[in-house]
Design a binder for these strands. Structure first.
Lengths: 122, 122
DNA sequence: CATACATATGAATGATTGTTCATATATTCA
DNA sequence: TGAATATATGAACAATCATTCATATGTATG
């Protein structure tokens, strides 16, 4: 299948900026890579999930404790834990009736801290 | 105003896990801080905005060039640049008719790179 | 086996959001 | 001043999403 470039609104900057645009284009990561990256940040882009991740970075916890900690329903937490698990951010361990969740990736806290540095720079 | 803790679904783990939950609670950042953090990541959680930021990290660019680069309409780009500006991620500079946008924060690329490290670890 | 409990899940709903379309604003140039 | 160009913006629409509610699944316990 031939990849055809759709004719876009093209302003007169073209002649002047074409080189820069082409340079930038050549340096951009793959479309798919950037899509995946956006998907990851989408997971971080909800304060309930941020709180869960922050909590799990402190200690492994079961679902009902997270719900209690965050003052939310068990169901809401359970749904969000599923999202976090699908994003490979948390793992779980079953002990009888109780399911304990914990953080998988050590980058998470680093990403959060860098984000915090930005928000503090206002 | 008195802060009243809403009665939540509370499981029998309470007795056993109460100490851990209270410890975690004491270590959690302010509600508002985590909300702001989530808002920041929400901005990163869209592939159009990710692409714009990635592009601007390479070079200052005008609106129509970004639109051309990303094969999108000027209007769509303009709307997203507004979101990025409100999040204090980009600044702009006017030169006649043309408005050039550039990146404000050097953390951005670092945050992206850490995010990429996570996505690569699947 | 029946009951209680911890968690998961599907459907429904209200809210948010990204893009498009039409149009407004601002600037240059003839 | 009028036409052309670059950008911004408001309304509308479709799509996505977080929470709730009801209920299902799985496990221990009496």
């Amino acid at each position: 299948m031939v990849e055809e470039r759709q004719e876009m609104d093209r302003c007169d900057c073209e002649v002047i900026h074409e080189d820069i645009v082409n340079l930038v284009r050549s340096k951009m990561p793959l479309e798919e890579t950037l899509y995946d990256l956006a998907e990851l940040f989408k997971v971080f882009g909800d304060s309930t999930r941020i709180k869960i991740l922050w909590a799990l970075d402190e200690a492994e916890m079961c679902v009902c404790d997270i719900a209690w900690l965050l003052n939310m329903t068990q169901s809401a937490i359970s749904h969000q834990l599923r999202v976090l698990k699908q994003a490979n951010l948390v793992r779980n361990r079953k002990e009888g009736k109780i399911v304990f969740y914990s953080l998988i990736d050590e980058h998470v806290k680093q990403i959060f801290n860098q984000g915090l540095e930005h928000t503090r720079e206002l």
